[in-house]
Amino acid sequence: MDARLLPTVDLDTIFRPRLAQLLNVEEMTAKEKLFTFQFKDGTPLGQDPGQFVEVSAFGIGEAPISVSSSPTRGDTFELCVRAVGNVTNALHRMAPGATVGIRGPFGRGFPVEEMRGRNVLFVAGGLGLVPLRSLIHAVLDMRQDFGAVTILYGTKNPSELLFRNELAQWEARDDVDYQVTVDVADESWRGNVGVITTLFRGLPVDPRNTVAVIVGPPVMYRFVIREVLGKGLPMGRILVSLERRMKCGVGKCGHCQINGVYVCQKGPVFTYAELRNLQEAI
């Protein structure tokens, strides 16, 4: 096009991260740690529940990580990270005081305002609890604004359960129906055994006023979406968050693309109504 029509741009580009300090590291499981960060300039991250950031381990690279904390809880933010690639392993080697780079928050998070007044059915599989926790905290911090709250959580085995202190708190609350299951039990496990869909048997769900929020591995979506459709929920009130390789986070690099959709721009949160015709989505 005519170069004069091109937008003026900030030379402090979309690729420059801001510096953040690692305040605290908490071991969650053998593979996952919870990191608490604060921007060096003291500003809050300003995320919506469900958004993600690009984390720089300088010299190693950058990786997209979902934010695990709610904006309703202070100026620090938390990332729960599994050590699985170069950047995440570098994070796992860091101690409090270390500096990382953060770009974001990016993407479309959960539509909290639209969910107000409704029952919320949370379904988390494995690491899916990490992004979902940001929304669970937001909902629990504004508990009176929502109807019935149900949290279903499943992992492969008990050793993979994340945020154990919080799970106990949810379990103890009268205003939350919390249920957990593991695919394979160990000697200590006294709870449900079976895949997460087994929790749906007899689960009371009012299809007129419930939003289902499902986050987990791709295989889980296929089965859990079937369950909530079976409860009568409309496709527009079934929310999922998709994992993709968001290399740039700003809708350019192409890695996160599902058919014609850039997940870093239109997602990672989608309604099932938006996904049903995207063949590559789930």
Binding site: M1, V9, I14, G251, K252
Partner: peptide
Amino acid sequence: DMAFSEVNPDANYLE
């Protein structure tokens, strides 16, 4: 031009 100026203008290309 469209790809690099839409939504998040990309200074590295546009300059």
